[in-house]
Design a protein around this nucleic acid. Structure first.
Lengths: 234, 234
DNA sequence: GACATGGAGATTCCATACAAGTAAAACGAG
DNA sequence: CTCGTTTTACTTGTATGGAATCTCCATGTC
């Protein structure tokens, strides 16, 4: 008996489906940063009424993917350089803590998961599949949270995960030299954790995140590259 | 010329007002833990339609105050002992980090704010005003986040703040012996921070939060005390 | 030309009606 | 009485229309 497709899929609500669809569109770069996305146009595109779209936009606002300006409209988030700095500061803090928890609670499972993802990254890296590499990068860092056994820490990461993934896809994934360094650092992270060398882990993590930040900021500073929709933020 | 009331207050949306009202009702104990709160009944009480109530419940779900079970109804959160453990673990981690950031960025402002709140706590403590003491306790810990200069860390705290405040009001505020110890610990925290002794700060914080946890858990274990609405959780 | 005024268009916000799903009571067979 | 089925009440999920309000542009005044 095949193990998959046994779990029945409950009929999801339209609002949930629409939420996922919009999230994916933003993360994949289908919508550009700062773009206006009105309830009505989305409802038309998905051929549903405005109600579930409204619910979806409200939900996405909490993950920071969408900014709703009352009575004015909804917009894809459009991070400033300052925003990216805060995202990275927050991310560094949270990943450090989540990993510490995970190493305490389920060290083996974590290491195994990281190793598996790292192997996949190797192949994506070799084949130059930037999209896939970005997705695996996202999964790698998410693994800390999946094994940290505290649902709230996971929620705290959900708060920024989608934004980070978007930045990866839209701003930093295309940079080849970053991918090179990034790949090595992931290896170093695993190595440090294997040896229980948390000090080194923290150091590598910091370096790793700072590089991401630098690349994103640099990319943001060249206004007419990468389909970034520049417009006054308010 | 009086300095206040110059800033115009934008008319808030009904959804926002309703959200605040429900939040307050839960935090203050007006609704009991686990109580069912349907869209329709709330709409009736506030004399609005279901739309803004629906938006409000969705928003409150993100702060964990409300659990929405699809097609079944909405319920005030009802933490298990395990939930409280996770809340406290999360809280300890986040307060530690926020305070570290605040001490780096705006040490003086933080200390001043803490001192002011501590003085107020002294009077509330002396007068046996448990409600007020609980509110000041909430404000004291929130101060770390107001001065940490990272909006995301603040958001991460919003994720649990209301739940913690509710637990304080409903489960732990009434315990006199806890208030005694709690008061002293707040003083110790200020003292440690004044001396830049972060190791001691972390230790006191840990003790402080663990005591809160113990009291809440104890209270939760005596089922028929404190208006806790016991019912099967699913 | 600078600035105020007015109105058209676009968009959300809220109310309401209906559809669909869930839980629990009522019922009936054994 | 027990078990399984049907029915009923209740609650949320979705669609849709209209009110409110914001933006932007055109027009007019000085």
């Amino acid at each position: 008996m095949s193990s998959r497709s046994l779990k029945i899929q409950r009929p999801q609500s339209l609002a949930t489906l629409v939420t996922e669809r919009i999230r994916e569109a933003i993360v994949s770069g289908e919508f550009t940063l700062g773009e206006k996305i009105s309830e009505e146009s989305l409802a038309e595109t998905f051929d549903v009424s405005r109600s579930p779209v409204r619910d979806a936009l409200n939900a996405l606002q909490f993950t920071g993917l969408v900014e709703i300006r009352p009575k004015r409209g909804s917009f894809v988030f459009n991070p400033t350089i300052l925003d990216i700095g805060q995202l990275c500061e927050y991310r560094e803090m949270l990943e450090r803590e989540a990993c510490t928890l995970a190493m305490r609670g389920s060290r083996e499972a974590l290491l195994e998961a990281l190793k598996a993802l790292f192997d996949e990254m190797a192949s994506a890296h070799k084949n130059g599949d930037t999209r896939r590499y970005a997705a695996l990068d996202t999964a790698f860092h998410k693994a800390f949270f999946e094994h940290c056994s505290n649902a709230l820490v996971q929620d705290a990461y959900l708060l920024v995960e989608a934004r980070l993934a978007t930045i990866r896809t839209v701003l930093t994934a295309a940079k080849k030299e970053r991918r090179e360094a990034s790949y090595d650092e992931h290896g170093e992270i695993i190595d440090a954790l294997k040896k229980n060398d948390m000090a080194r882990f923290e150091k590598v993590l910091k370096t790793h995140i700072h590089r991401t930040q630098a690349v994103a900021v640099e990319r943001l500073s060249e206004p007419d590259s990468g389909g970034v929709y520049q417009k006054p933020d308010r």
